[in-house]
Amino acid sequence: MNFTKLRYLVARNCKLFFRDKGTFFPSLIAPLILLFLFIAFLGDVYRDSIRSVVEGFPISDGLVESIAGGWLISTLLAVCAVTIAFTANTIMVQDRVTGARNDLLVAPMSAGLLALSYFLATFLVTLLICFTALGAGFCYLAAIGWRLSVLDVFSAVLDSALLALFGTALSSLVCGFLRSQGAVAAIQATVSAAYGFLCGAYMPFGNLAGWLKDVLMLLPGSYGTGLLHLHLMGGAIEAVTEEGMPPALAEALKQGFDCTLDFFGSAVPVWVCYLVLGIATALLLAAYVALCAHMGRRARPRRSVRNFT
């Protein structure tokens, strides 16, 4: 593998993403909508929900803000990791539509190297934006009342990176099939609108009907969202015991806000969440590699068949 070519291809893809207004700004739509909804009314819904769980016990406004803030940041990150990956990967489809792919492949390099460059660029862009959002989120949480441990901070960084990798693998596979800008726009709109609900970012699973919750728990993205909820809200929720509330109440809050997940009635340990996310990412990645190999075989010229004439 030629790492110089790969480095330049990745740099080109990343630069195209940030320079092209048609890709960069749409990637911010879903997180901005979420932020707007939180400011408009979802924030109050979450605050009321927290107070209703601890009804009868005194809880400080600062702690309620910390829990609600942790929910906001974790949902933002969960949605960003996938929607931004989808937007960043549109470079792959654009190159097919504009013919840039043909131009790149006229050079002496393999289609596999180009496919790898799309994957790495998408991952880097997604990671960069997620880490920027996480950094801003940490500042916000520090401003309203810091409740995270060092382990929570590192875990949130790891969760964001894993979800970015998952989003990259998922979007690479889906975009691998797309051949037009219209198809990309349709997929982007669908993902931006639906993914937040599907992964439990907009609405805690506890608020959904039992069967729907079980169905959504079959989707690996839900486990990534759960991990972010746990590591960005868990500290604040556990702090309620410091304000004199029983541990059972903290546990109820954790369950109510998806910090602990259950699958068909059984509690899902944290390591299983990581395992599910890791296996799902590996499978998506394997499928993407298989797709690229298949398309490479179709596109590559074969040696002449001597008896054809």
Partner: peptide
């Protein structure tokens, strides 16, 4: 090619730089 297939959002210099790297 028949139509321009360079990256419209990138500068001329960047386009040439990234393409040249593919030839070492």
């Amino acid at each position: 090619f028949q139509d321009c297939v360079l990256d419209k959002a990138l500068s001329v210099r960047d386009n040439l730089k990234y393409r040249a790297a593919l030839y070492g």
